[in-house]
Amino acid sequence: MNQIDMSRKQPLAQVSAAVESLHSRFESYLHSPVGVILGTGLGQWVESLEGQLCIDYSDIVGFPRSTVRSHAGNLCAGWIDKVPVLALQGRFHLYEGYSPDQVCFGVRTLARFGVKKMIITNAAGALNPLFHPGEMMVISDQINMTGHNPLIGLSYGEPQFPDMSQLYSQKLMKLVHSKALELNYRLQEGVYIGILGPSLETPAETRAYRALGADAIGMSTVMETIAACQMGMEILGLSCLTNKNLPDCMVPTSLEEIIDVGQDIEPRLTALLNVVIPEMHAMK
């Protein structure tokens, strides 16, 4: 077998090894219909799970480690209204030095566990001048400005050229809008642009990204969403808007401020997820 063939098979084997190492502890959650990725400052949602079980990433064969503050670094399982759920409490980023393959390791592990519908959350900066910190945004589409792609050279046995004309599920977008309305939550909708980071964007970059059609900006999500699409998942994206970028009057921000606003949004995100997930499970 040549070197290229080996490089294609090795990540597959690593994901399979991670799944195998979890079987005995997560046997009740095999074929869980819904998976969730929790972004910066949003990890407390797992506390609402019934029968909560969390395992540190360091205890899972092959799993990367989450190094960013406010990312707990646990794979969690539990139940919401009798629906089994798997959740990544913290994610991996390109700016941490991880490869696209490592960034998507958790998503691919959940897919091998049988997850068919994925909710991907993040903390993001608002680029649309009509959006405000403290609001949530349904992601309608995305722009990948990281310069990376998790599908390069690695097929994972799935299509290497997946269609992305409807990357985010229209059905799930309609569902979350209707549930937000019932909860009397203001929910924006727009395009998310993913950048490499970790430096925050300049005023000139902010103008450029807004000109491209982006409504919110962050340093995650786009890699995971591409991988989830390749694995055949239905995807719902939710951005929690933690700061606002107006290029003509940029206000300095920090990770601490982003975490604080994310934690303020988290109770509303928890309530929304807890009514959306059972409906997602019921949808055909």
Rank of each mutant, 00 (worst) to 15 (best):
V138N: 00
V138S: 01
I139Q: 05
I139R: 05
S140D: 02
D141R: 04
Q142W: 04
I143L: 09
I143H: 01
M145E: 02
M145T: 03
G147W: 14
G147H: 13
N149S: 13
P150S: 13
L151H: 02
L154T: 14
Y156M: 15
G157S: 09
E158Q: 10
P159F: 07
M164P: 00
M164Q: 10
S165W: 09
S165I: 11
Q166D: 10
L167T: 15
L167Q: 14
Y168V: 03
Y168D: 01
Y168M: 01
S169N: 02
K171H: 07
M173T: 09
K179A: 06
A180K: 14
A180Q: 13
E182D: 09
L183A: 09
Y185K: 13
L187G: 04
Q188R: 15
Q188V: 12
E189S: 15
V191E: 08
Y192T: 05
I193M: 07
I195P: 06
I195M: 15
E201R: 01
E201P: 02
E201Q: 10
T202L: 03
A204V: 07
A204D: 01
E205M: 04
E205A: 05
A208D: 02
Y209P: 00
L212M: 15
L212C: 10
G213D: 02
A214H: 11
A214D: 12
A214M: 13
A214T: 12
D215L: 07
I217R: 08
I217H: 05
M219P: 01
S220T: 07
M223N: 11
I226A: 15
I226Y: 07
A227D: 06
A227Q: 09
A227T: 09
A227P: 07
A228L: 14
C229T: 15
Q230C: 09
M231K: 11
G232F: 10
G232I: 12
M233T: 10
M233P: 10
E234T: 07
